[in-house]
Amino acid sequence: MTQTSQEPGSKKSTDGAALTAQPRIKDADWTWARIWTRYRFAIVTVINLSVFFVIWQLLAHFEVIGPHLIFPTFTDTLRALKIGWFGGQVDDGTSFELLRDFVIAKNAWESLQRYAISMFIAIGIGIPIGLAMGGFKWVDAILSPYVWTLSSLPRLAIYAPLVMIMGIGESIKYALIILTAIFPVIINTWAGVKTTEQSLINAARVFGAGRAQIYKKVVLPYTLPFVVSGIQLSLSRGLIGVVIVEFLTGASTLGGLGWLIFRSASAFNSALTYASLMSLAVFALILVQGTRSMEAKIAPWRQVSKT
């Protein structure tokens, strides 16, 4: 291995020279040790997942957990994934009515639309509510009993009274998803406004800021990272909401991914259940990872002391 050019006690970024210095790490030879240090996380993950899937396959194949109706093999699940997403012939008797061409894709699209619209509404309403509650005492006084009660209440409990009012239709789905998702945005936004550093506000006032400018130049930028983490939380809450709501309201054909999971399970099409579940898991994973990097990009100054 070639030695990298590293000064002793490597300089901090406060040091002007370090910012303009040449890259410290030069190209090194490819050795197994280097490949390992660089890719060990990926390698471990691949091994880890392979072992997981093999064990799954063995457990299912020998029906350790239960018959195939209850616990599908990994290969059957893969096949259900392929047909559910990309279409294909269902050739033998192992499949049930539900597993048709593109069935997962169609239901996923259904859920995604519902989810996206609800989240837009939840975030679009939640941020202004949080800002108003943080900024105006009387808005806070009026709204906080409802916000705190509803946010502490398990949202499923509101389902029954909501059904009485709205009936079972598309609108109740949106209402319930929005209700599950909206509070983290409201509360985080509110907290951001409330905790804005007094000394930053004082500084702005000394340099001439009026009330409106204090909001624009201090409170809003200070609150932004709080809003971002509120949105992150809300996005995962909303996802729970979608699945629950699709389960509760049911449908005859196209009920969404959540509906498909429950419906296929009650039809004992376990391969489809697991295929839908895996699809949902991948989507959730992408969502979480995507929003995680969002905060670092929007508010780099908040990352410093964490590392």
Partner: peptide
């Protein structure tokens, strides 16, 4: 600034 914002007693669903 770097600590995370208020966590709530939100039960989720």
């Amino acid at each position: 600034l770097a600590t995370s914002p208020a966590t709530t007693m939100d039960p989720g669903i």
